[in-house]
């Protein structure tokens, strides 16, 4: 552990006092700032760190089980358009009958590449691959013994290019992803492991954009830095007798974005009883490493200029 601490500080020192490079780590496309969304991954390659993300919802398992999760994610850019991402989640399952269990979920390792950006039209496209590494978590909390590979396409689009006559719609932006979770094993102990179509969307209305680009309506702190949004997250099994058993949530909430971090909170509303029985919540504290450490952790490892 001492070695890890030393390594951490050596990396910070080496970069923080190194050469200044111009780099862009936030979710920007032209004049549009996109916040990091809570429930669905956004399309941006960035230096960012979430700690913690806390969520809780009652699932139908075992007649009703409260699933509370505390997770952390970090993304670091290798180049201005390519990053690597790591995530870990601590899960507590508290069934209505029986004792609670807890443990870590499988380690998540991912990477994303942003291959298209149009500043004028506030548009961005990227591709990514996420791997939940089987066997790295606790089977007490249902961590899979097999790995799941999820290639995905991500998109983001701001409506700032609409005509001036539609000015109050211009703060709207949409981000989303379409991916397929591919298990490395067809079944576990007789239970099928289907491929799963994963869809995620975030519909945002940026008060930041409204104030800065459209009309100063006199909002003051903290409201002038808020982005109300609704996220939709869906999972649709595709095969092995599970097709059509869709689960998902609709999550209305708000994100407040400051200089160095953002905080967000959303209600988690299950779309059906297969997903959950009551309204849960998710909340997140998210740090912008590119602003906190612009010359070290907050810049790409290679090719600092965009």
């Amino acid at each position: 552990m001492k070695f890890l601490s030393l390594l951490f500080w050596l990396i910070c020192a080496a970069y923080e006092f190194g050469v200044i490079n111009r780099a862009y780590g936030h979710g920007f496309a032209g004049a549009r700032f996109f916040p990091a969304t809570l429930s669905t991954d956004d399309p941006f390659v960035a230096d960012e760190f979430s700690l913690p993300t806390v969520s809780s919802i009652v699932t139908p398992d075992d007649g009703g089980t409260r699933d509370t999760e505390v997770s952390s994610d970090i993304a670091l850019r290798i180049t201005p358009k390519w990053d690597i991402e790591f995530g870990e989640t601590f899960i507590t399952l508290n069934p209505s009958r029986g004792r609670a269990v807890n443990g870590f979920d499988n380690l998540s390792v991912g990477s994303k590449y942003e291959f298209f950006e149009n500043d004028e039209h506030e548009a961005v496209l990227s591709v990514g691959l996420d791997v939940d590494v089987g066997g790295t978590g606790s089977n007490q909390v249902g961590a899979d013994s097999f790995s799941t590979w999820t290639p995905a396409v991500f998109f983001g689009k701001g409506l700032g290019d609409l005509p001036q006559g539609l000015s109050l719609v211009r703060p709207v932006a949409i981000t989303g992803l379409v991916g397929v979770g591919l298990p490395s094993s067809a079944s576990t102990d007789g239970s099928p492991n289907p491929a799963v179509l994963r869809l995620g969307f975030a519909f945002e209305y940026s008060l930041i954009y409204l104030q800065e680009q459209v009309r100063d309506i006199g909002l003051r702190a903290p409201f002038d830095r808020m982005i109300p949004l609704v996220e939709v997250s869906l999972s649709d099994p595709l095969d092995r007798g599970q097709s059509g058993l869709v689960t998902g949530t609709v999550n209305p909430g708000v994100i407040w974005s400051g200089k160095y971090f953002q905080v967000g909170a959303e209600a988690v509303i299950p779309i059906n009883s297969r997903t959950g029985n009551d309204v849960g919540f998710i909340a997140q504290l998210h740090f912008y490493l590119d602003d906190l450490f612009p010359h070290s952790l907050g810049r790409p490892l290679f090719g600092g200029n965009k």
Binding site: E212, V214, R215, D216, D291
Partner: peptide, 18 residues
């Protein structure tokens, strides 16, 4: 933050936005 800087967002303008 006392020694850090961040992205520069528009705070206010004259004439004001819109």
């Amino acid at each position: 933050p006392a020694r850090l800087e961040a992205h520069a967002f528009l705070k206010d303008a004259i004439p004001s936005v819109g």
